[in-house]
Nucleic acid binder design. Structure first.
Lengths: 116, 116
DNA sequence: GTAAGACCTGACACCAATGTGAGGGGCAAG
DNA sequence: CTTGCCCCTCACATTGGTGTCAGGTCTTAC
């Protein structure tokens, strides 16, 4: 499979596929002329990468997590721990934005004394 | 007041004060030699800018909002509307991260079948 | 063999607030 | 007048995934 086909099949841009390779998420073979040749299971892998991106993970986390997933059973505990860690990061992000929103509410409340 | 004094008084870095001026949030006088001279009320204004940053607003929002605050009474309604708009943006951000977290929970759940 | 289209690498752009450093001038106390 | 600290401008770096362009190569169908 060439890069354009994989892009069409996954909905991920060619640019992004090259980026994923650059980050070490994918390791396609190369043809004699240097073109990327993807094995059929790359499709699954790209889909997984997209799921992880959709879950708010960054490339750095992906670098940790992808190797644990390739052969999940033996390392399920480590993988689970790492995902929980990301989950906690998201929870912290939510808490922070909630604090932001409270600050804003406080300002809006102060403002109310002028508006009547 | 010179820039170093204002920085010390507010806890905001000299670099940031110059940035705020660049963004149009502050308009200090200049001495004959070009040094920034801040009026005493700059202290309040910088504190306000920091409060807005702490509430998760970006410079672009600040550009909208600061002019409405300088003379708050006549424009309280517009200001309030603008702040509510920012509040909604934060709520949307929270909702999005919650969806991310749910995706992650889903993956963690799938993983559970391997871990026992 | 040629034309069209897919592919290659390399590199800049985006967004935002701040850090940092270079190279040079200002100011006040001794 | 010198020393030391404060200030000036300009400009690059950071973070991260993707868009996009330039200039060149490969493949495929005709």
């Amino acid at each position: 499979m060439r890069i354009g086909e994989l892009a069409a099949a996954t909905g991920v841009s060619v640019r992004s596929l090259r980026y994923y390779e650059n980050q070490g998420f994918l390791n396609p073979e190369r043809s004699a002329s240097g073109q990327r040749i993807y094995a059929p299971d790359a499709l699954q892998r790209v889909t997984l990468i997209q799921r992880l991106f959709d879950a708010g993970l960054c490339s750095k986390a992906m670098t940790d997590i992808l190797p644990l997933i390739t052969d999940p059973r033996p390392q399920a505990a480590a993988l689970q721990a790492r995902l929980m860690q990301e989950r906690e990061r998201l929870s912290n992000d939510i808490a922070k934005i909630k604090r932001n929103r409270e600050s804003l509410d406080h300002m809006i409340g102060e403002l109310r004394q002028f508006s009547t």
